[in-house]
Design a protein around this nucleic acid. Sequence first.
DNA 1: ATTTCATATTGACCGCGGTCATCTTTTGGG
DNA 2: CCCAAAAGATGACCGCGGTCAATATGAAAT
Lengths: 194, 194
Amino acid sequence: MPAPVQKRSQRTRARLLAAAEALVERSGFDALRVEEIVLSAGVAKGTFFAHFADKDALMDELIGARLDAHIDALQDLPPPGDVGDLVDRLMPMLTFMSCERYVFDVILRRSGAAAIEEIGPIARTFYRQGEIVIPWIASGPFRKDVPPDVLAEGIQAFAMQVIALRFCALHAAQGIAEPLKRYLSAWLLAPQAR
Amino acid sequence: MPAPVQKRSQRTRARLLAAAEALVERSGFDALRVEEIVLSAGVAKGTFFAHFADKDALMDELIGARLDAHIDALQDLPPPGDVGDLVDRLMPMLTFMSCERYVFDVILRRSGAAAIEEIGPIARTFYRQGEIVIPWIASGPFRKDVPPDVLAEGIQAFAMQVIALRFCALHAAQGIAEPLKRYLSAWLLAPQAR
DNA sequence: ATTTCATATTGACCGCGGTCATCTTTTGGG
DNA sequence: CCCAAAAGATGACCGCGGTCAATATGAAAT
C-alpha cells in the first residue's frame, strides 16, 4: 500500500484486483472471500494484506471504480430541467449502490474519508459527485436561498436515506426514484414554485 | 427468541443481558465479545445464540434501550420554538449515537426493520421519534408546504448525514449541532422566514 | 560476480462470530 | 409418581478475516 516500488509488486496487486473482479462478476460482492481471491491469483493470503489494509479497502477499490464510471457519464451534461430530470440522472448510480445490502454497507462505511491524506475511491466519488451537481443546482431552476453546496449535500443525504429505507421490508415495495423525487422536490424548490 | 416459554430461559436471557450491560459499562460497546458475555454469565456459547439471532441482535437490544431512554425524555414537551431549540432537544440522543463508530454502524444496520413482523428496538425508536417530532413540526413555526411526516423523515436523514460526516477526519473538528442547525434551517423553514 | 539491504512473499497461526448434534431439564398427561 | 415429548443448554467445531516472524527476491553498491 505505501507506494509500491517494485514492478513485481504492481503485477501482484493487479492480479489480485483482476481475480477479485472476476469472482465478483461470477457471484457478486457479498460472496467474495479473500481466500478465493488469493487462490485464484496464485498468491499467499498474507500477500493480500500486504496490498490492501483489509478486505474493505479492496471493496473500496472495486466499488469505487464502478461509481466512478457512473459519475463519468454525468460529466459535461447541461443542468437538469427539473427535479425529475435530476433524479433520473442519478438513478443508475443509486441503483448500483442498492444492488446488494453489502455494497451499500461498504459505501456507508467508506463514504467518509478515514484520514485527510488517505481518501479512498468511494469517498472521492462522493466529492466528484458534488463537483458536478453543485453547478447544476446553481444554474438550474432550484431555490437560491440556500447555497448550492449545501443543497448538494442534502441530495446525498436523502439518497442515502431512500436506499436505507429500501432495505427494510416495510419500504422495499416502493422503489427508489419516487420517494427520492418527493424528498428532493421539498428540498430543492422554493415553496412558491411547488 | 421465538417466544421464551420457560422461566429458566427468561432467567438465562436476563443474565446474558446483565452481563453484557456490565461489560459495556466497563469497556464500551466496541470491545464487547460474545465469549466474555457467556463466560461472565456462566453459560455456554451456544446458549447465547439460542437467545439472540446474532451479536447485532444483542446490540440492538442494548443500544435500543438507551435510545428509548432519550426518547422518553422528549415525551410531553411543547413544540420547540425554533430550529435551534429542536436541535438542542435532539442533541443528547445524537451524542450517544455518535459516541462510538461501532454504535453508529449498528444503528445504521438496524434502523430499518429487518422484517415486517420483527421490528427491532432500534427501528422502533426511530418510529417513536417520528411520533413525537411530527406533532412538533405540525404545530411549531415551520414550513407548511411539506407534510410534517416528510419533514420529520428529513430530520432523521440529516441527522444521520451529520453523524456520518463527523466520523471523517475532515469533518471531525466541527461538532454535530452546528452543521445540523444549518441543514435544518434550510429544510424546515420557508425561504421568506429565514 | 558477490555482497548487502530494502522490498515482497509466505503460510502457520490467531481471534471471534456463529453452528449443530448431543445431552439435560422441564412440563404435562396417564 | 413415572415417562415421553418439548424446550433449553452444551461445547467441540467451522468459516473467514487478519497477523507476523521467517524466508525469498529484487536492485543498488563494490
